[in-house]
């Protein structure tokens, strides 16, 4: 029965070793996907490379289906699986700021660490910038504290809000993703940039 660590007494050392091993897999997957390249990531927004869309949605669907199956098989206690807490204002405003950071800087935090690992100098500066941004948030926290906690909805699932079963919503997400994959493949043909792709 999972999740293993919260349910069983696992020593601190083993817990941290698992953290490292999961990170290792995370880093290998990101790097093999090409997320260590800012121009490949940015390609998403100009259509010449939609790897981000394909990897991101495939991964979230695989994990989502896995959770649905594990739950149906009684192999995971979903009541202790963390569901992100929803605060409307901070989720939207935070997301918009992050989106700006993405198109300006070319990375997100996870991909920047992965890219820095293989020697991308722009990624190293992005990591430094991220630390500065977090420090700025921390130093000016009183200004944002109210916004940070405004409009609290709670750890709510989209399936509950829509009143459908997880499995059905999962199916809708899969169909939507397949449609987007198709659009992505079309976009890569239409906005092809051989000059960039061969450099990546």
């Amino acid at each position: 029965m999972g999740p293993i660590i919260p349910l069983f007494e696992i020593s601190e050392e083993i817990n941290l070793l698992i953290a490292f091993l999961i990170g290792l897999g995370f880093g290998i997957a990101l790097e093999q996907a090409g997320f260590s390249s800012s121009r490949k990531l940015a390609g998403m927004f100009y259509g010449y490379d939609t790897t981000v869309l394909k990897v991101f949605f495939t991964a979230s669907i695989v994990a989502m289906l896995g959770l649905v199956f594990l739950n149906d098989l009684g192999m995971i206690d979903m009541s202790i699986v963390y569901v992100n807490d929803y605060y409307i204002a901070s989720a939207i405003i935070g997301g918009v700021i992050m989106g700006g950071g993405f198109i300006i800087g070319g990375f997100c935090p996870g991909t920047s660490v992965c890219a820095a690992a293989i020697g991308k100098i722009d990624a190293m500066y992005f990591v430094g910038g991220s630390l500065i941004g977090i420090l700025i948030f921390g130093q000016t926290y009183p200004l944002w504290e109210k916004l940070h906690f405004a409009q609290h909805i709670g750890p709510v699932k989209l399936s509950d809000t829509l009143g459908v079963k997880d499995g059905l919503l999962g199916l809708i997400v899969i169909i939507a993703a397949l449609l987007m994959f198709w659009i992505g493949e079309m976009a890569e043909k239409r906005f092809k940039r051989e000059d960039i792709s061969k450099e990546l």
């Binding site: 405003i93 700006g100 430094g128 910038g129 977090i134």
Partner: peptide, 20 residues
């Protein structure tokens, strides 16, 4: 890269997490 990183870092704190 520094400006983008700073925005992402700031936004991730307000938004309770980043892309991952």
């Amino acid at each position: 890269a520094i400006i983008g990183g700073a925005l992402f870092g700031f936004g991730s704190q307000l938004g309770r997490g980043c892309t991952s």
